[in-house]
């Protein structure tokens, strides 16, 4: 059986998400340098804008995919016994999904 995220696809996903994250980080650093929000309310209303929300959510999707490919690569190298893998892989996947869900319920309802 071939998993969905393997071989070339996993490699491409990791590179494309890396590029997105790079742009994402530069954008936010620039935003805080040149248009730093003065207080929490400004920051909150900025973050609640539709396009900013989309950027952040996409950023987290990219981060989680990137982390999954990277961590799985490390585990395939170092975690040899199948039994240990059977624990480690779902554990990491579960943790990443939990982070994703937490992000979703935090950011999506922002008004």
């Amino acid at each position: 059986m071939r998993s969905v995220l393997t071989g070339l696809r996993a490699w491409l996903v990791q590179r494309v998400t890396a590029l997105y994250l790079l742009a994402f980080i530069i954008y936010f650093i620039a935003h805080f340098l040149f248009a730093s929000p003065s207080d929490y309310d400004t920051w909150r209303s900025y973050a609640a804008q539709g396009d900013v929300k989309l950027l952040v959510l996409a950023g987290f999707v990219a981060l989680l995919l990137h982390a999954w490919v990277g961590l799985r690569d490390v585990m395939l190298d170092y975690v040899k016994p199948i039994s240990a893998r059977a624990v480690a892989l779902p554990l990491v996947a579960g943790a990443l999904i939990a982070i994703g869900l937490w992000m979703l319920v935090t950011i999506a309802p922002l008004r």
């Binding site: 071939r2 393997t6 071989g7 070339l8 996993a10 490699w11 690569d73 395939l76």
Partner: peptide
């Protein structure tokens, strides 16, 4: 033959 998780893409 090379497009799987091990044969080529273990290269870091």
């Amino acid at each position: 033959d090379l497009d799987d998780v091990y044969r080529l893409f273990r290269c870091r």
